[in-house]
Amino acid sequence: MKRKFMWEKLLPTPQTMSFIGLMLICLAAFGLLKPAYATADNLYAIVLSACLSAVLALGMGVVISAGGFDLCIGHAAGFAALMCGYFLRSLGMDPYPAMLAALGTAVLIGAVNGFLVAWMGISSFIATLGMQFVLVGVRQWITAGNSYRSGNTIKQLAQGNALGVSNLILFSALMLAIVGFAMQKTAFGRKMQFTGSNIVASDYIGIPTKRYTFLSFLLSGAIAGIVGILQFGKLTSATINMGDGWLFNAMTIAVFSSVIFGRFKAHGIALVAILLTMITTGINMLGVSSAWTNFVLGAILLLSLFAGKYLRFNQIKVRKGRVSHGC
């Protein structure tokens, strides 16, 4: 039995394999219709545009695995970008302190969410939905409708290259690796996931469930802050509507990934983000109406929820599959 474990370990899980298969089908289908789709340049562009969505979904994934939802994660990221611009331009701060202050703002948003959910007992849906409206109001008030330019330092941070690979991709990969490691391999992550799976049973084994709920929101706030700042550099300017619509993407990716891969998996989030971007890019390149993109993404979200019921039901019976944390 021991020996069998050894070589089994080298193979990706059945979920990962079938997922890569799905990506290849997507590549072949769009490639046949539009040869420009299946070029290395285009695929690199797809990964580049998928990576920040993946990181934002990472934050959402952390909150979901701790048993909540963070509906303001997109606006928190946008708000961090705006605040970064505000600190730079209106307060005249240097780029690095400004970024740090913006990150602090995002963490504070997460802390307020976490406090409301963990200690005030407010449903995470309601608390974060409320926070989303607060942010939309406050950004109007602070920026007075101005947009801010990022300046070279921040732009360079997001748009630069190292070893021929975009910094954005490197940053994202690093974030996925760190958070994935913390959530899948450490006692911290295990306790966070227990809290999400069964909060009562977690209380009964002495896990400080309130603290872990709070921490999940704090973490998602921090991740949102980082994404916001990188977006700021990538777009080179922060406008008032920064962050609108980011939630949908993050949510779709996080939910899809947790349904397919069973629980929090960083590589799952990365794969789902890339697949979804492959689909939207493909639709765009075919020149079909953009209404189709929304239709397809919405349908994927609903289908994955539907499939989730079936898959989870099946997993109970799976004995030989890998059905645990961190494979």
Partner: peptide
């Protein structure tokens, strides 16, 4: 409802107290 993490493995449940 109080004694186990139902959607997790036997292994994870056994190590849940004394991680």
């Amino acid at each position: 409802s109080q004694g186990m993490i139902g959607d997790d493995t036997v292994r994870a449940n056994l190590s849940s107290v004394d991680m």
